[in-house]
Every structure is written in structure tokens, then in C-alpha cells.
Design a protein around this nucleic acid. Structure first.
Lengths: 178, 178
DNA sequence: GTTCTCATGTAAAGGGTTACATGATTTG
DNA sequence: CAAATCATGTAACCCTTTACATGAGAAC
């Protein structure tokens, strides 16, 4: 992963929704997008400069209050074209998953290893909490059908994340001693 | 990801099962472990040197045929200790997932976008193929209960991967037009 | 004999995290 | 007025991939 510089496309996609600052983009990676891609501000700000140098985005300086300077970035036509090309082309690679917990399970040799049940319990707690958080988000972000229609893609990926967590918890419970 | 150097622990875990060469380890990342962690030989060989320098593994040169040199690596007591410590400690971080396809969906704004259905179709084909492959592996690697009992962790993670793909396909089909 | 798999390495480049650094604005 | 959040950047370090490089053994 990483090698194909997908971050640039994600930033273009976010800016296509509405002009935003680097800070806003950082928040998007902590919230709606964080379930499927991660990036820190230290990666985002340099990328914004690169994209601007390439003529795919531009920015407008705005000042809030006394003198807080913000850079509001937005797409250029070239940037929009590049975004459309990316979304349209196939995504032939399967999801890259790095799951340290599942890997540890691989090294548990027998069903009666005393570490197994506590490990499953711990993960179940983590994923139940995450599931509750995602469900909460769904009810606040998509209270009615109108909200879904306006941001269908967002609805889809939140639904996907919720089902993924549901099934993760189900799987853990399958092997939890009752 | 990456930052915590989990690769070293995975290699220790693999060598704990049986002494192996770098080539064998590379194959493990393509097969049984590849669903949950990825690493190329160019990362594995240097790591073997590091682990040996740290006194956590050793190797024995073996010669097959005329002069094909192989390095059979195995754990030292120190390496075994480090492995046990890793498996025993908590894994408080959630799975890191980078899914380019799901991200693209995020940028599809409406249910009638003409790109949506072909995208779902394409992914369904990919994940169905992966699912078939994993099921095939399960029947060959675990033909009976005895095989499961001997490598319980391996059984667990293969089962997890299969269910994950099943649910991914189910989710895609939920939004595929019939 | 050619192709595929086995087998081991190194180098370059890029992706990604953590830490360093600074300052304004809002909230309690 | 202190703490949390908004806001922007850079530097160092490590992880990871792609490409370069080489050679033996097995299978067809």
C-alpha cells in the first residue's frame, strides 16, 4: 500500500465536496474517512503544497477574528479531471488489512491456551465500543432519508464500517466461552 | 502503521513453529499470514540479520544438491522470550484498513450515479474469487478435526478471513441492483 | 534447453508516524 | 486565566515497495 499515492486523490475528493482548510481535511481523516484511510496533518500539509504546485488545487487566504490566517483550498479544473479519472478507473487490488490481534491468534497453538479467552474478551470490548460509536454517528449524521440521498457515498461507507464491526464482534463471540 | 516494528514479532512467531529460511517466511506472507499482514523478501532478509545481531535468532547453513546454500533460522531462548511477551501483552489498537474501493464510494454522491453499479460488480467478482480461494485452502489445510487441534490459531485466522470475505460479498450484494 | 521455482541479497524512492515548533481563538 | 481546540508548518526516523542483481535446481 501507499506506493500509489492515493492520498492525493482522497484530498481532491474531499475538496471537491467543498473548499476546505488543511485542518478540516485532517478532521475528515479522523472522522468519516478514518475507517478506510488514515493520514496525519504532517502528511496533509505537504501534500496540499504539492497539489497546488501541480496546478490541481488553489487556495485563498482568509482571516478570522483578529489575525488567524486560514488557507481555504479548492479544486482547479485540472484537479477535478484527475479526481474523476481516479474514481472511474478500476480498483483491482484487494483491501490491505493489518490486524495485529488476529496475527497473535495465529501463534496460539491449542484451544486450551490460557491466553486465548482473555484476548478474545479484550478485542470484543474494543470492537463493541467502536460499533456503538459508529451507530451513534449514523443516527446523528443520517437522521432521515433526505440526508442519505444527499451524501449517498458517505452513507454507504458508514454502513459498511458498521457491518464490518458487527461481524467482527459476532466472530469473536463465536469463539468466546459462554 | 509500521512504527512499532511488528514484523520482527511475526518472524519470531513463524520461526517458533519450526526453523525456516527467509524464502519460507516470504511464502508464509503470501499464504497463511498474507490476509492479515504483508511483507516482501526485501524486508524480511534485512530483518533476519537484525534479529540475529540482536541474539534473538540464529542460523545454520545447509547445502542442498551440489551447492545451493540455504540459511535455516531458528529462535534462541531470548527470541522465544520476546515472542511470548508480545503475544501476552494487550493489542489495544484497532485494525488498520486501507480500502481504496470503499473510499471511491465515498465520492459517489447519488444513488443513480452510473459508475456505482459497475464498481460494485467489479468488487463483487474480486471478493467472490478471494472467498473461493480461501474456502479451497480451508478444505485442504484442515480436512479433519485433528488438523484443527494441531494448529488452532491457523484455523482461527483462516476462519476469520473467510467470514470477512463472506460478509464483504453480502454487503456488496445488498447494494447491487437485482 | 527453456521456463519456473527456489534462494538470497542490496539500493533507491516513497509513504507514513512521531516529535518538534508556534501562535490564535474559544470555552469553562 | 487555563485548558481545549483551531490552525499551520518542518524534521527525523522508520516502514514498505519497487527495482536491481545473481545464481542453483527442478520440471516440461
Amino acid at each position: 500500500m501507499g506506493q500509489r499515492n492515493r492520498l492525493q486523490y482522497i484530498i481532491l475528493g474531499l475538496l471537491n465536496q467543498r473548499p476546505q482548510t488543511g485542518y478540516d481535511l485532517t478532521k475528515a481523516f479522523e472522522n468519516e474517512i478514518g475507517e478506510f484511510w488514515q493520514a496525519k496533518h504532517s502528511q496533509i500539509y505537504p501534500m496540499l503544497k504539492r497539489l497546488e504546485a501541480a496546478g490541481e488545487i488553489t487556495h485563498e487566504d482568509t482571516v478570522t477574528g483578529e489575525k488567524l490566517a486560514k488557507k481555504q483550498y479548492s479544486l482547479t479544473p485540472a484537479g477535478h479531471e484527475k479526481l474523476v479519472a481516479w474514481v472511474t478507473e478500476p480498483s483491482p487490488e484487494l483491501t490491505a488489512i493489518k490486524d495485529e490481534f488476529i496475527l497473535k491468534l495465529y501463534f496460539i497453538k491449542t484451544v486450551d491456551d490460557p491466553r486465548l479467552q482473555p484476548m478474545l474478551q479484550e478485542q470484543a470490548a474494543l470492537h463493541r465500543a467502536q460499533l456503538a460509536h459508529l451507530r451513534q454517528r449514523q443516527t446523528t449524521v443520517f437522521p432521515d432519508q433526505g440526508a442519505i440521498d444527499q451524501a449517498y457515498g458517505h452513507y454507504l461507507i458508514l454502513d459498511h464500517a458498521i457491518e464490518r464491526e458487527e461481524h467482527y464482534v459476532d466472530w469473536l463471540e463465536k469463539y468466546l466461552a459462554h
